Computed example of a mutant assay.
Amino acid sequence: MQYNQRKWTKVSIDQNIEIQTFNEVYKKIDDEKYSDEVKEKVKLIENELNKEKIDKKQIRNSMNWLKNNAVGIAGIISPLIVKAFGA
């Protein structure tokens, strides 16, 4: 629950996030005919998340690119990144 600070109105936020796998993301990329560059950015993120020492800057740069060029893909990858960081 969150409270609107200006009016102190009780606000309920419900989010239903479905965690997908990277294989499902690649299938969506293929099904919706996204560019190969989209697939490359997703692969870069996947590879970074599998490293012992994750380069957050690489992930941030790739996510920014996806947000500008493939917002639908960025939206489904975000929960995978959050999950990888244990949040």
Rank of each mutant, 00 (worst) to 15 (best):
Ile17Phe: 11
Ala74Gly: 11
Glu32Val: 11
Asn4Glu: 15
Asn16Cys: 13
Pro79Glu: 08
Asn68Leu: 08
Asn47Gln: 14
Glu46Gly: 04
Lys28Ile: 03
Asn4Phe: 11
Ala84Val: 06
Glu52Gln: 08
Lys67Arg: 14
Tyr34Met: 06
Asn61Ser: 13
Ile73Gly: 06
Phe22Ser: 06
Gly75Pro: 00
Lys83Phe: 10
Ala87Asp: 14
Lys57His: 00
Ser12Ala: 13
Lys51Cys: 04
Asp31Ala: 12
Glu24Leu: 01
Val11Met: 12
Ala87His: 10
Ala70Cys: 07
Ile81Glu: 10
Trp65Asn: 02
Phe85Lys: 05
Asp30Phe: 04
Gln15Met: 11
Asp30Gly: 12
Asn69Gln: 09
Ser78Thr: 15
Glu46Pro: 03
Glu18Ser: 10
Phe22Gly: 04
Trp65Tyr: 07
Ser78Cys: 12
Ser78Val: 10
Met1Cys: 14
Asp14Ser: 13
Val71Tyr: 15
Glu40Ala: 10
Val42Pro: 02
Ser35Pro: 03
Tyr26Trp: 03
Asn4Met: 07
Lys10Val: 14
Gly86Pro: 05
Lys53Ala: 15
Asn61Gln: 10
Val25Ala: 04
Ile77Lys: 04
Lys41Trp: 02
Arg6Glu: 14
Asp30Val: 15
Asp30Gln: 12
Lys39Leu: 10
Asn64Pro: 00
Ala70Ile: 01
Gln15Phe: 10
Thr9Ile: 12
Gly75Gln: 13
Asn16Thr: 09
Glu52Gly: 02
Phe85Trp: 02
Ile45Asn: 06
Asn47Ile: 05
Glu18Pro: 00
Ile45Leu: 09
Lys33Asn: 14
Ile45Thr: 06
Ser62Lys: 06
Asp14Thr: 00
Glu24Asp: 13
Glu37Phe: 13
Arg6Phe: 15
Asp14Phe: 05
Ile13Leu: 12
Ile17Lys: 04
Leu66Gly: 02
Ile76Met: 01
Lys27Arg: 09
Tyr3Gln: 10
Asn68Val: 13
Ile17Tyr: 08
Leu44Thr: 11
Ser12Trp: 03
Trp8Gln: 13
Asn64Leu: 12
Ile76Gly: 01
